[in-house]
Design a protein around this nucleic acid. Sequence first.
DNA 1: CAATATCCGTCCATTTTACGGACTAATTGA
DNA 2: TCAATTAGTCCGTAAAATGGACGGATATTG
Lengths: 263, 263
Amino acid sequence: MPKKSTDDASRLTGTQSIERALLLLREIAAHNRSGSRLLDLATRTHLQRPTVHRMLKCLTHEGMVQQDADSHRYYLGSMAFELGLTAAPRFNLREICHPAMVRIAEATGDTVFLTQRSGPDAVCIDRHEGTFPIKTFTLDIGMRRPLGVGTGSLAIVAALPDDEIQNIFNSNQTRFEEYGVSGPSLLTQAHKAQKLGYSMREAPTLAGVRSVGHSIRNQSGTAFAALSVSSISSRMTEKRVTEIAVLLKNEVRLIEKQLINAM
Amino acid sequence: MPKKSTDDASRLTGTQSIERALLLLREIAAHNRSGSRLLDLATRTHLQRPTVHRMLKCLTHEGMVQQDADSHRYYLGSMAFELGLTAAPRFNLREICHPAMVRIAEATGDTVFLTQRSGPDAVCIDRHEGTFPIKTFTLDIGMRRPLGVGTGSLAIVAALPDDEIQNIFNSNQTRFEEYGVSGPSLLTQAHKAQKLGYSMREAPTLAGVRSVGHSIRNQSGTAFAALSVSSISSRMTEKRVTEIAVLLKNEVRLIEKQLINAM
DNA sequence: CAATATCCGTCCATTTTACGGACTAATTGA
DNA sequence: TCAATTAGTCCGTAAAATGGACGGATATTG
C-alpha cells in the first residue's frame, strides 16, 4: 500500500533503511535518560514494530544501542559515545564559546546554555551554571528536542528564512505536542523574536522559568547555534531581559569573529 | 555473484545496509584526522563504490558525516558528536578511571591511556600525560584501531578465551597490515601477555617507544577495557616494566571494585 | 490467581528497496 | 593537452527489507 510518504521534499533514494535507522537513533537520543520502549519508538517514528525491532537488534549488535536486560528499554550504546569522542576535535564550538559562557554566568548569576541545530532538532551541547542559589536546569547536556521548543532553539529558528521556518514547523508539528507547545504559537513567538533580535519566553513545561536566547551565525550567515540564559521569572524583569539580550548580543559578536578564523 | 560472505558467524538478517553504514562510520572514525576518500572507504570496507557513495550521501545529509568541499574527503559529522554527548552520561568508565590515571601518571611520569573495546576495534577514550619532558603521544582520544594493535588493546585480547582470540585475529587479518603488524606475531604476543598477566611491547610503527598494559574486566569477568603506560624505551627497563605492571594491577583492582557499584 | 490486556520478539511471502555494472563528469598530474 | 585517476549518477535486476499475522512473555485487573 503506497502510503505516498508526505515526508520532506529532499528525497534521497536507495537509503530508506539507513534514514530510518538514523531516525531511530535520534529518537532514542531524545529520550536517553528514561530510555525508550520498542512500541514508543515505533509510534514516534511512524515505523512498523517489526521493522523497528529488526533495526534495533542490528544497532544493538553493533553497539550503537544498548538494551536494558530488565526493562527492555533502549538507550544509546558505547559506539555512539566513542564516535562522539572521535568527532569531537572537529567540533570546537564548545571550546570557543566556553569563555563567553563563563562571563555571562558570572555577569548574570544565572545558568547559561549552548544549543546547536541538528537537522530538525536542537541539541544542548554545553551548560554553565551561575552563582545564584536557585538554579534552573531546564536542559541537560546532550538533550535533543524538536527545533523550536527551547528558547535557544527558538532563537535559531527565528533567524532562518520564513519559508524554512514554515517547513520546520510543518514537519515537527506532531512532535511539538509531546512537549506541550503548539505550532502556531511558536510561529508567533518566532516572529516576535525576529523583531526583537533575541528570543524570550516562559518555559511551557516548567512554570516560573523565563529564558532569553540569541542565535549564533556561521560565516555564511545561517544561524546554527544559540546562547541562552535561564532564570526564575521573578528575576527576569523586562528591564533585565533587555540587559541580558545586549550582553548576549555582544558575546555572540565575539564568538562569530572567532568562528571565521577557527572553521 | 554470491561472494558467500565469509564474514562473522553472527549473521543478522534484514539489516544489510545498516550494518554496512555502521561499518562505514567505523572506518571513517578510524581515519578521522586525515579524512577518508571515497575510493579508500570502498576498498577498506570491501563495498562497491556506488554503494559507498549512496550511503555517504545519506549519512552526510543526516549530519553523521561531513564532506570537505575542497578535498572531497569524508569526516564524522556533528550528529556523531551530539549523539556522543547524549550517550556520555551512561558511560562513566572515564570518570571512574580518571583518579587512577592521574596517580599512575604522577607515579611514573609517563603518559597513561585508557582504551575500550568496541567490537572488532579498540578505541582510546582517555589520556593523561605525566611530567617527564619527552612525551609519547601514541594515541589520540577517540582513535580507533583494530583490536590487538595497541598495547592496551593487546591486554584486552590476551584476557579473552583462546577461540575468541583466534576469531578476532582471523577477521582483522587484512586490517593488521595497514598498521604494520602481522597476525601470527600478535598471537604470540597475546600468549606471552597471558602468562605475564600484563601486555608489553615495542610500538611497531614508532621505534623507541615501549608500553605496558593491563586489562580491566567487568562484573561478569570479561575484559572490555585496559589501562596502559607509554614511554621511550630507554626509560622502560625490564625492572621498571614489572614495577609499572604491579602499579597497573593494583589500580585496576580498585577500578573493578568501583565498576561493580557503578554499573 | 485466573483472566486479560500489553508489549516483545519472530516468521515468511511479497514487493519495494538497495545493489552494482556501466557510463559520464570532474579533477589531478605529467 | 591528453591520459589517468577519482567522484558522482543512472537504471535494470535481484536480493534485501518490509510488515501482516502469530506465539510467547510480562504486566494489570477483577
